[in-house]
Every structure is written in structure tokens, then in C-alpha cells.
Amino acid sequence: MAQRDAEFIRRWLEAAAEAVARDASRLTELDSAIGDADHGSNMRRGFAAVVATLADQPPTDPGGTLRVAGRTLISTVGGAAGPLYGTLLRSAGKALGDDPVVDDERLAEALRAGVDGVASLGGAAVGDKTMVDALLPAVSALPDYPAARQAAEEGAAATVPLRARKGRASYLGDRSTGHLDPGAASSALLIGALADAAAAGAEAGGAEAGGAEAGGAEAGDD
């Protein structure tokens, strides 16, 4: 089983920042349908700040890296995604403690704790048309990274027919149906970036499982 260090988390979050920047206008477009049209710009600002903070003062362990990234998101995103994604990363970071290296199973458990934190903060369950619809099936599939990517994408796509029960979109009632939830869409990007980082590590290391599915890393398949 692969070992994950601070550098792995940093590569994940850098890949997430790139994906969010690339898809910022799509996220904002999704958010303009059922939200307040700021999700793309908020996420881009937040993840750019994460990359800058980690480059400036890189923590030496994966847990510390996640905690710093979470704190940065809470202070820079400016919308509900800030405390929600911030709590995801921070709770996961706390679960990892200060160990310099963790294996995939521990990282998976920590990310499950992070998603529990998100669900508890937002009071959301699967089916409420939120980030949780993409995140929960994804972390359940870990440590199989390609399966997590697929679960996140399917979970996000499954929000389209749902009626929103949380957040601003819930005010729209039935008019929220027929739209992809922007938070679920950005969650799929975050999980996709994690799978990319794992695939890149597998290619570089040569010996890790899951490398055969790494093609998605370059395909931009969203």
C-alpha cells in the first residue's frame, strides 16, 4: 500500500487548484442557475491561496498540510464552500495527527472523518443535492482512487434531478431540479485531483497499484 507524505497532499491540492481554475467559469455558471453565481470565483480564490500558503510555509507532514489548507480555505473563499471544504480538510488533517507518512488506508479514514465533518456542519445527507452527494460515495470507495473518482462523478451527476434541501438553492423548491449542484461538481474536481495525484505517484514510483487507470490524469475527462 502506498505511503503518503506532505508532498503528496501538496500535489493533490495543487492539482485541485488547477482543476478549479480551469473550470471556474463552469462552476459559476452552475451556481448562477440555482445559487448566487460566485462558486467558481470563490473556489479559484480559495485554492490559489492554499497553493500560495503551502509554497510559502510548507508543513512537513500530511496532517499539518491538510490543516493549513483547511484554515486557508475558511479565511479566503468567502462563501459557504469556505467553511465546508475547510472543515473537510481540517477534520481530515486532525485525524492524521502529526505523522510524517501515512498509508492509503489511514488517509481514506481521515478523509471519511472529513466528510463526516462536512455533513455535520452543513446538516446535509446524501440526496440533499450538495457536496455530500459526490464526497460520501467517493471516500467510501477509497483507497481505490480511480473508483473514488468515478463515484464522485456519478454522485455529482446524480444531483441533477434532485430537489435541493440545503443552502440557497433550497429556496427554489422544485425549480432547483434539472441542475447539477455546483458544490457536488467542485467536489468531483477535488476527488479527481486526488486520483490524479495518486496516479502520478504510482507512475513515478512504478510499484503502486492502480497505475493502469492513470490515463484519466491527462485526459481532462470532466
Binding site: R71, I74, G78, G79, A80, G82, P83, L121, G167
Partner: peptide
């Protein structure tokens, strides 16, 4: 509402 409430809650949790 919304992010105002969630941000305070996330800060208190820390």
C-alpha cells in the same frame, strides 16, 4: 445565513 453561520461554526470548532 448560509456562509455567515457556517463560517462562525467552523471557527468555533477549531
Amino acid at each position: 445565513l448560509g456562509s455567515a453561520v457556517l463560517t462562525v461554526q467552523a471557527m468555533l470548532a477549531e
